[in-house]
Design a protein around this nucleic acid. Sequence first.
RNA 1: GGAGAGAUGGCAGAGUGGUCGAUUGCGGCGGUCUUGAAAACCGUUGACUGUUAAAGGUCCGGGGGUUCGAAUCCCUCUCUCUCCGCCA
Length: 423
Amino acid sequence: MLQVNYIVDNRDHVLERLAVKNFKQPELVDEIIWLDHRRRRTQMPLNLAESQANAEAKKVGELMREGKKGEAEEAKLNAGRYKEEIKKLNETLEEIEKEIQEKLVLLPNLPHASVPNGLTPEDNEVVLENGAKPNLPADALPHWELAAKYNLIDFELGVKITGAGFPVYKNKGAKLQRALINYFIDEAEKAGYKEVSVPLMVNEASGFGTSQLPDKEGQMYFVGLDNLYLIPTAEVPITNLYRDVILKADELPIRNCGHTPCFRREAGSYGAHVRGLNRLHQFDKVEIVTIGHPDESYDILEKMSAHVQGLLQKLGLPYRVLRLCGGDMGFGSALTYDMETWSAAQKRWLEVSSVSNFESFQSNRLKLRFRNAEGKTQLAHTLNGSALALPRIVATLLENNQTEKGIKIPEVLVPYTNFEWIE
RNA sequence: GGAGAGAUGGCAGAGUGGUCGAUUGCGGCGGUCUUGAAAACCGUUGACUGUUAAAGGUCCGGGGGUUCGAAUCCCUCUCUCUCCGCCA
């Protein structure tokens, strides 16, 4: 959530940046500025009336103690006169504040200066490509056929017990998945991220804090009986650990990692692109989250990006890094890098990680602050990234490493799987 | 599922109608003393809003009410804890 004062002080800049994000309701900006003016014009007389009423009320107490009953009664009447005015102004003020809030939550974050213009994924900027794409024989299989051939994943069984998009992992498929999770967590810890294990359901305040709510409500599974949401990503519980917290400057940066299943309704998706592991309602992910000083957040973003790339390199997967264009970026992000691996049998790039700097967009909602050099509270910056999302990694590993003999497990994983081949 | 208790500043814990944004202790910060540290002592220490700076205003779980005046009284919601039951 943007700060009202910032919008008021930087109107033109805000409008210009929102245009890069292809924001469709720029009129909200001026509406907010106008409402803020009204808020101030209401606040001032209200505070004055409150001040006078307070003074009269205090006087009543003093007069009563001195036994001046008549004067006390008079003061009571005086104080009573402010009451109606206060009530009226207060109602107006609350109305204005509510309206500001309603408009404010509709504004996305402002994109960083380096974000390319554009509307669709085609407009994303390819920052770099790394690793050689394997040359597979013409009869190479997509991962869903490999999964069936080697009895690794049972999609039909998942449909039976739950529904489409909830696969059942079996045999070496289950072990490969567990190996990857442990590997990713170990690597994150080596890089300085402290592991946390967090709840998979969150309340409404948490959903709001990281800006899934109110705008992306339909994307989350909701447990109505208890008013809880299944997490779409570990970003939500991990970042919300620091909701309503004022940190010391020397505590920054705070770095956490964690493995969780993620649940996504993904309403409206279907077809070839969601085949197999490409798109699921439930999947596992290791997430890295950093809370950093505003001056350092873009350095931190590069480090997080480098960590993710390091994982892909060690797994021997060809990948590319995209800088998302304004139109393709998430609602709360100021700059996002997407990492995609080359799926050799499907012959397409698959997104396996998304690393974002939210600047103070989330922390403003979270009330996540630190005490700066002047001793004043200041909003911290929040960042997060997948390191990594499991299913598409499994998919590309299966596809890219298929041979006549079977599927070769990357060397770094063997200590975790305890097998070298899936045969 | 049943019964009860509670929600106050970073933490602990006072406060049952007026001078309470809130006693006190711990913790934090600054200082005295010390070669240095500890101890002791002195001082300081909530957030938000507002202003050039003040003043002023709001906040004692959320919302509503009574009153000239509410942390304190009433209603309501939410959450937490304890005991019993069930259970990984």
